[in-house]
Amino acid sequence: MFLGLFRIVVKTRSRGDINPYFLFLFNWLSLALMSNEKTILVADRVTKSFGTHTALKGVSLNIPENSIYGVLGPNGAGKTTFLRIVNQITYPDSGSVFFNGEPLKPEHVALIGYLPEERGLYKSMKVGEQVLYLAQLRGLQKQEAKKRLKYWFERLEIGDWWNRKIQELSKGMAQKIQFIVTVLHQPKLLIFDEPFSGFDPINANIIKDEILHLKETGASIIFSTHRMESVEELCEYIALLHEGEVILDGKLFDIKRQYKRNLYSVQLETGKGLKMLSGLEEHFKISDPSFDEVTEQLEFSVKLPKGSVSDFLGRISSEAAITGFVETIPSANEIFIQTVQQKMGNE
């Protein structure tokens, strides 16, 4: 615990522009909150190299129980390697992983469901047989697996596929089967690597809803993707991986709060056009203005230090009709880029 605290403090120090004392307090608080939550998975300084290439450089993560956790980062950041270690496909060179408080052991595969990025099924095997086989490999009894399969086949409306071969099914159909294979043994931890790549929007939504439903019934979920926008709305926690290191992790809400820059996006309906801004620019920092003459919509961004929002709104409301006013929250992507840039700047 102490080590974790130390790590966060060291990491936050390097961010520079934010008050370190505030951050210390904030981190301590969130840590205290976290310690109340049970963790399903803890990675402690996990390192893995392939030949001369180091894929993971001391990755430490705490994944709270019954949460949706996003492991985000560009291609080659080490996400898949980390997930393979959690699934005991490969083993770390040093460091350890704890599942449910215990060091990871082979029996845990029955409690973990994994949908890898490179996924597929036996092409010439019948759907029913195939899913039964994979479920049994995960430790499920045949009769129980059959019962649950019936439930899932009905739920996803694919009941008549039992005797068909995968090569006769469309890609979207095969994706549904893969999803069932992943969740059939009712794992406590579900891991999806690039979950929605290759899905059409309808299937993606079906699967998304099913995942959320599983979370409600108590499962913990890890999403790993380089397309951060695709899972951002779903994740409560995120960890950003870059070149084998965790450069940022924690509650997504908190991270976003840290990274917002008091920037607001404003939309006004006014006949005055850009001239209207000249008066405001004396008091506020305004950027990216644009004016649509047809709809008479004036759009711009404004930086509003704490406590100046009502002042600002008061000034403009007397001169124009406010059609939009929203705080600009940075996306995970933006946060990632910003953090990497800061890190590079520090080095």
Binding site: I89, I112, P116, E118, R119, L121, Y122, L134, R138, V181
Partner: peptide
């Protein structure tokens, strides 16, 4: 067929 990783996440 890309099934390999699904299997070896369950067996050695």
């Amino acid at each position: 067929s890309r099934i390999i990783e699904i299997i070896i996440s369950a067996v050695k």
